[in-house]
Amino acid sequence: MNFKPAHLLEAFNGSEGHEQGERIKRISVSQQIQESLRSRIISLELHPGLGLSRGEIAKHYGVSQTPVRDAMMKLEEEGLLTIYPQSKTEVSKIDVDQARETQFLRLSLELEITRKLALEKASGSTATARKILSLQEKALSDGLLDAFAALDKQFHLSLFQSAGVANLHALVESRSGHIDRLRNLNLPDPGKASNILKYHRLILDSIEQGDARACDEAVRAHLSGTLEKVEQIVARNPEYF
């Protein structure tokens, strides 16, 4: 899963950005490396158990080892790397218990967010999510699962933003490394992506209709899918756990 979903994501980001003005993201070199490594770990390009060399990574990014060390320490705090002092650094195995914990947090937040949006029935609160859903449908029809997964994150972020709690999405993301890797192992399974689209539609329909109960049911069903399949996922990929 190495496809970079540029054209779909640029289509979305471009349509949102021209009205608001272009935003320049200023982050340190170590943060850039952290984000890049995190993305490669989540996508399973850097698979669980893989040994990483600080020197080789520094050479890959064309930097000194100092920002690489700082990035690795941050990733260790997230639980995505295991650093053995004076020995080695490995991509952490997937921790199912930690994935369940993060899912509990995410479910709790998204139930409240969608309930809030449904009860308020705020005009335009689902407009961005609807645009993203259309792009997800296009990504799936083109067989672009990387684009689909990236847009999935944008879909959920848009709901947090509509509810005025975007910073809480960043909190969830900082703890999502293990559950995200589980999802990426589950996403290619037959019917999984179509099922995601089905629940995204149900969530938006329920919000627009002001039906908080239907929102609750759709969110619970949507967010439970991967963990319901965890035994099969582990059985297929025992070396990752």
Rank of each mutant, 00 (worst) to 15 (best):
S174I: 00
L140T: 01
S92H: 08
V172R: 12
H178A: 12
T128C: 09
K153S: 11
A129M: 02
K93L: 14
E110Q: 14
Q103V: 03
S134I: 01
F155N: 06
L145T: 03
T102M: 14
E173C: 06
D146G: 05
T128S: 13
Q154E: 15
S141T: 09
S141V: 03
D97F: 09
Q98Y: 12
V172W: 11
G177P: 05
T126K: 07
A150T: 01
A149G: 02
A163L: 11
E173F: 11
Q154T: 05
N184Q: 13
R130F: 03
I94H: 12
K121C: 04
N167R: 13
A149R: 05
P188M: 09
V165P: 01
Q136Y: 04
V91A: 09
A150S: 10
T102I: 06
L187R: 04
L144Q: 15
L140H: 02
S125M: 01
R115I: 00
L109F: 15
K88F: 10
F104D: 12
D152L: 07
L144K: 09
A122N: 13
L157I: 00
K138L: 11
A122Q: 15
D142R: 06
D189K: 14
K138R: 11
V172Q: 13
L117C: 02
P188A: 11
L187W: 06
S162Y: 10
R115Q: 10
E110I: 01
R175Q: 14
I179S: 11
G143M: 04
L140F: 03
F155M: 09
V91Q: 08
K88P: 00
V165K: 12
S87A: 14
N184L: 15
I179C: 03
I94S: 14
P188Y: 11
A149K: 03
K121W: 05
I113P: 01
Q103I: 08
G124P: 03
T114N: 08
S134C: 03
L159G: 04
R181T: 04
T126A: 03
I179E: 09
R100N: 07
I132E: 07
N186E: 11
S123V: 03
V96P: 08
E173M: 14
